[in-house]
Design a protein around this nucleic acid. Sequence first.
DNA 1: ATGGTGGATGCTCCA
Length: 264
Amino acid sequence: MRITTWNINSVRLRIGLALKLLDQSRPDVLCLQETKCPDEQFPFEAFRDIGYKYIAVNGMKAYNGVALISRVPFESELALDWTERSDCRHISGVFPGDIEIHNFYVPAGGDEPDIERNDKFAHKLDFMSEMTDWFSSNRKKSDKVVLVGDLNIAPLESDVWSHKQLIKVVSHTPIETLSLTRLQETLNWIDTTRLIHPEPKKLYSWWSYRARDWSTSDKGRRLDHIWVTPPLKSYIGEAYILREARGWEKPSDHVPVTTKLDLD
DNA sequence: ATGGTGGATGCTCCA
């Protein structure tokens, strides 16, 4: 089972790139974030026409939005609200083999890493805390669960272009990386990308639109993650980040991240 | 220290 997560930054604007991605890598499940699309305007037909017939969406006008796009049937679709907001940041489903996939778009957190002065930063930390409580209370380490998405946190020194220069920048501050560690501890989650590509290898999945030359300056961060619970660890086959997608025409600022589980 | 770009929307918000 090949699983890809991608913050597409508008599914309608980039439907062509989504089809190109599916055509070239044929994942079983594509998990999108920032679809920025009300459910009734989601381009279902374009995906179904190339064999991705099973689709679940949780979208809204202008902001956020997530989707599960699959070649294989799934059930128990669930879209939860977090921090008492209906802002379309989660969707999940149960796939063949009794594997549950949770797709998240964690709030970015604004510019200032101070919960007193920045409500968005407080919201981000509250969101992480609520995710941690939810998985602690509702799932077990022995369950087969996959957690993917744009978590908007680059936890390790080798997940950013400069640990020193980003230590006070939202996405890489100690309080955020600690919140991610707390979440990781709930079910002993395994970071599949890092399992295959250990530190100190630099890994990025996002490069700002604001750079003059994203590739040459290469000031990236690894914000997009695929985690699995312990029962799935032995199945992790390949894991890769499609850096070249940042160079596609009219790209998203994030690139697709993929993990293959070699199930029996 | 600052501003740089991009998407959706509708004269601004968010990343």
